[in-house]
């Protein structure tokens, strides 16, 4: 067994041991283990660079692409504003402005949007959004507007 494979197996076993079927908020220890496992083991593509520079046009395109699909759970601001179930889902939906999300490399954010994060609620968007759109979303995520500044997603009554 290669060292990397061993790490994957150990991390997977640790997560399985911690996984419950009940939707209660994860403990601080669970969150720490899972966050570390995601950053260092499961979420790949760390070295791929965003082919687009973060110009105002690219960020605006990313915001537009984000508005079709991502806003249902992440809100227009990427910080969960106006998402009605945000307090009732476990693991919780992170604020995309949070350090745990922002610490991912651009390539990892692309990977997460492409593939999703099983078994959280985060679905993969490969095929639903083009590579170009996903990279513009990554640029948008690095330049999120202030929390609450964008109103609430149209899909929810308000």
């Amino acid at each position: 067994m290669t060292p990397r494979r061993a790490i994957v197996v150990v991390a997977a076993a640790a997560i399985l041991a911690l996984a419950g079927c009940k939707a209660t908020p994860p403990s601080a220890f669970e969150t720490w283990v899972v966050t570390a496992a995601k950053h260092h083991v499961f979420v790949g593509n760390r070295s791929q660079q965003n082919p687009f520079p973060a110009t105002p046009e690219v960020i605006a395109e990313g915001k537009e692409a984000f508005s079709h699909y991502c806003v249902a759970c992440h809100g227009l601001d990427g910080q969960n504003t106006g998402v009605p179930f945000v307090g009732h889902i476990s693991p919780p939906i992170p604020s995309l402005a949070s350090p745990d999300v922002q610490r991912y490399a651009d390539g990892q954010l692309k990977w997460v949007i492409d593939n999703g994060i099983w078994p959280s609620g985060m679905p993969g968007s490969k095929g639903t959004l083009s590579d170009e759109e996903i990279w513009t979303i990554v640029a948008f995520l690095r330049h999120l507007p202030p929390a609450g500044s964008q109103g609430e997603p149209e899909m929810y009554p308000h």
Partner: peptide, 12 residues
């Protein structure tokens, strides 16, 4: 690419 979001297979 399709430049107007059109549903589940838009990205392909």
């Amino acid at each position: 690419h399709c430049s107007v979001f059109c549903g589940g297979g838009h990205g392909s």
